[in-house]
């Protein structure tokens, strides 16, 4: 579904992603692991086009501060130079880190905005799906999203991404700052989302909660891919264990 080859991303002179190649197959759940500043967010932003957007803006100001090289092929098409909007239309949806929501809008307005590029009828169906996936949101429909708890915001953020109709859903640290109960909820929802034909890539620092559900995982250090394997393979590796699972 997605093939990334020799991807490099520079911010000014800092190398954020170093010669990265990986693939995602249809229907997989892929884990992307690494510590703070390992490059996880940059990788997901580059896949969703946000890095490209920043690069274009910097270029307009007259500098080439951001450099992206290599290739990203999605469903057999080169998407390296597509705008975020075009990638959304192709079904690549990013759910950003720290559960971002539009704080001044209600929960339902947030969810509907997720379907900004879609027809009203399709949005309705997706809303239905989101409410079935996260029943607590039904009661919160009219509440301002800014007033919600972290877990509730995460449900809204994931819901918003789902209303955008992803084929490939990129989740950036969805478990960060959530209670163990909420983490389990997000993990359950992720499996449910996959059942509906969505391929998922999720990044995390702390890998344990999602390790059981991933098909394969990539471990990133300083922008470089250092290890890859199935969930079990990574779990059994002693180095990985100490670095990403806690003791």
């Amino acid at each position: 579904m997605l093939n990334v080859n020799n991807l490099m991303v520079f911010y000014e002179n800092a190398l954020a992603v170093n010669d990265l190649s990986f693939e995602i197959k249809q229907g997989e759940i892929i884990g992307l692991f690494g510590s703070n500043s390992a490059g996880k967010t940059t990788i997901l932003n580059t896949l969703s086009g946000l890095t490209h957007h920043l690069k274009v803006r910097e270029q307009r100001k007259g500098g080439t501060r951001i450099t992206i090289s290599g290739s990203i092929n999605y469903l057999d098409a080169d998407i390296m130079s597509l705008k975020p909007r075009d990638r959304v239309e192709l079904g690549i949806i990013l759910c950003r880190e720290r559960h971002p929501v539009f704080r001044d809008n209600t929960v339902e307005e947030n969810l509907k905005l997720g379907g900004y590029l879609r027809k009203a009828q399709e949005i309705k169906e997706s809303l239905q799906f989101v409410y079935e996936l996260f029943p607590p949101l039904i009661k919160l429909r009219k509440n301002k999203a800014g007033m919600l708890s972290g877990g509730e915001k995460e449900m809204v953020a994931i819901g918003m991404s789902l209303v955008a109709k992803p084929k490939l859903l990129l989740m950036d640290e969805p478990l960060l700052g959530l209670s163990p109960h909420m983490q389990a909820e997000v993990v359950r929802a992720t499996l449910e989302i996959r059942k509906h034909g969505v391929t998922v890539m999720m990044s995390e620092q702390y890998a344990r909660p999602i390790m059981p559900i991933i098909d394969r995982g990539y471990i990133i250090e300083n922008g470089t891919l250092v290890m890859t394997g199935t969930g079990t393979e990574l779990m059994d590796n002693p180095e990985v264990k100490s670095a990403y699972f806690g003791t």
Binding site: H53, L94, V101, F102, L113, A157
Partner: peptide, 9 residues
Amino acid sequence: YTALSIGIE
């Protein structure tokens, strides 16, 4: 950035 990531330009 959230707006961008759901397709608003």
